[in-house]
Amino acid sequence: MIRKVILDSVAEVNKELKSEVLSNLNNDTLIFENLDSVAVLDLVIEIENKLQQEYGKFIQIADETVMDEIQTPFKTLLSLTKFIESKVKE
């Protein structure tokens, strides 16, 4: 479920970016590296919106690490999935 939320959200944001890397995602695909800061923000907003639709409540996923090149949980599809799973469980 969460993986689908992420894949759909990335696809939504990638409609404008048209990145080939982001259109063929696997666990190790580097997501953050292929997004500019506005696109990261777009992705945060998309994921939060889709999580709200799925779970019927607002789940905040953004924190101060999101835009941090080293700590960001948006590094790969795998790291992002784990991060969102932890947020959903909170």
């Binding site: 923000l41 945060v44 907003i45 919106n49 953004a62």
Partner: peptide, 14 residues
Amino acid sequence: NIKNGFLFQAPWTK
């Protein structure tokens, strides 16, 4: 989204 407003100056939801 109040937190996003403070974090990114982007307070609007989708």
